[in-house]
Amino acid sequence: MGLADIVIKLVLIVIIFLISLVIAMYSTYAERKIAAFFQDRIGPNRAGPWGILQPLADGGKMFLKEEIIPTNASPFLFIAGPSLAILTACIGSAVIPWGQTVTMGGHTFDLQVTDINVGILYIFGVVSLGVYGVMIGGWASNNKYSLLGAIRAASQNISYEISMGLSIIALLMVTGTLSLKEIAEHQHGWHWNVLYQPVGFILFIVCAFAETNRTPFDLPECETELVGGYHTEYSSMKLGFYLFAEYINMFISSAVMATLYWGGYNYPGMDWVLAHTGPTIGPLIGTAVLFAKIFLFIFFFMWVRWTIPRFRYDQLMDLGWKVLIPLAIANIIVTGLWITFF
């Protein structure tokens, strides 16, 4: 790997990082606009035209608010919690293939930071690490509501990680590889995994909702029972980090779902487009298609949030252990039989 390659990788990392942050920022705006639409309101419309500067105003407000660390909190862990939450949210994007190989000015490079051959498992590991941010922050606040929120988050994540892993196993049986790049290439020409694994996809999206703590699985921050849940004691940008991490997680899990099940950067007729636009613009169109799919999923996340009320805690556990896990195991068995006989 020469110097040019390293510079290209660094630029790519910075670009992906910035894109994640900007998308997370504007997800908060989109969420408020969509909520307003669902509730027949106008939504934020003061800062800039159509209120598009609202996220910047929110960010400025978050930075300028007074920062409070409770007297009996453990200070280091209190700060480590939100930092860990945002860190684990950001590192998941490293293995996602954002597009095909691009040729630009004599250089060819992949639109993927690194293609490790255990890509899916890496994402899975990052997801399972994400719960520590919530747990550490909730415990360090030294507040019963925070602690209960943290404990809910932990048990929920552990429960839904199992069915998520099982749904991925069925997917791996179909694709035969753990590398996200190869999975994306496999789906070229309408071989989208969602057509082969519809049940697996439904399991995966339900688990993704649970892992990102989104409604109807947002029990860790259930305000009717727990004040603010695990971030009750947080103020200023530390609170902002927790809220921001949720939106980044939403973006990353949408990207993962689009890549694993909905064809990634593939779209109908892409060979024709690629042949007519050349090796520089063509792959970038694929990237644009991937982002369109990601935005659809983010919209779906919000749509569900403003439509469905939240579960009771026992219902959540019942769904995870008594419905999703048996369904995921049945899905594996059916997939195995299908692969063996057809």
Binding site: M135, W139, L147, A150, I151, A154, S155, N157, I158
Partner: peptide, 8 residues
């Protein structure tokens, strides 16, 4: 996570 859960 389960260790931490129990200890908390």
């Amino acid at each position: 996570v389960l260790f931490l859960y129990t200890l908390m």
